[in-house]
Design a protein around this nucleic acid. Structure first.
Lengths: 103, 103
DNA sequence: TCGACATTTAGCTAATTATCGAAATGAGTC
DNA sequence: GACTCATTTCGATAATTAGCTAAATGTCGA
């Protein structure tokens, strides 16, 4: 259900926000112009897709992005189209495909 | 509307089939267990997302994958998550980030 | 325990979706 | 022109979706 979860722009933006750091439901909701219950429903979809983890923290519920799940799903897709997906910050030295590099 | 278009598994599979080569509506439909009108509707969604081009060829209509559109959309997303998307067959020599490679 | 706060659940609605069979369109063939 | 084939359009339906308000749940602090 990952792609279904990603089909909504609000949910994609939520994931993007969670990329920066874990955030509570309320904190996330503050970024959008829809009601809290609507946001809660979006969170539920993301949870069911296993794209986020939620943890109770006092009064709040803190959501955290599960990067590996997102990456795995995306990887399956991009690979089928002949693309490589890699961390932009990865150290390119000594990678598997390294060879005959000039300069 | 690209992500909406990608949210359906049938449509994702259609794109994958078109990755190999352009195919007619009927040829594509043969790969799926749904009616022609249903497939036609899927094609319409892909067309509206600009993910495929269609061309009349005699009796048939041939669909072709617009890789660049797909790549562009995906790139926008993956970049936001700190990933790089690149052609797996690309020649890695003399790329922008090339530097200090050992061996 | 009471009140305030954070979030979810319940119940509803309007819009969209995937699906179908039947009919319409359009191009090639006889 | 009439027939056939490929595809789409039409019209209908059941399921899903995103959205809302109001109510319920659960936690903290006084």
């Amino acid at each position: 259900m990952v792609f279904k979860a990603l089909s909504d722009p609000t949910r994609r933006r939520v994931l993007e926000l969670l990329k920066a750091r874990p955030m509570s439901a309320g904190e996330l909701s503050a970024h959008f112009d829809v009601s809290k219950p609507t946001m809660s429903a979006h969170f539920a979809v993301l949870r069911e897709a296993d794209l986020v983890a939620s943890e109770k923290r006092g009064k709040s519920i803190v959501y955290q992005l599960k990067m590996s799940v997102l990456e795995e799903a995306l990887l399956g897709f991009t690979t089928a189209f002949g693309w490589e997906l890699q961390d932009a910050r990865a150290d390119k030295r000594n990678t598997r495909k390294q060879k005959r590099v000039t300069e």
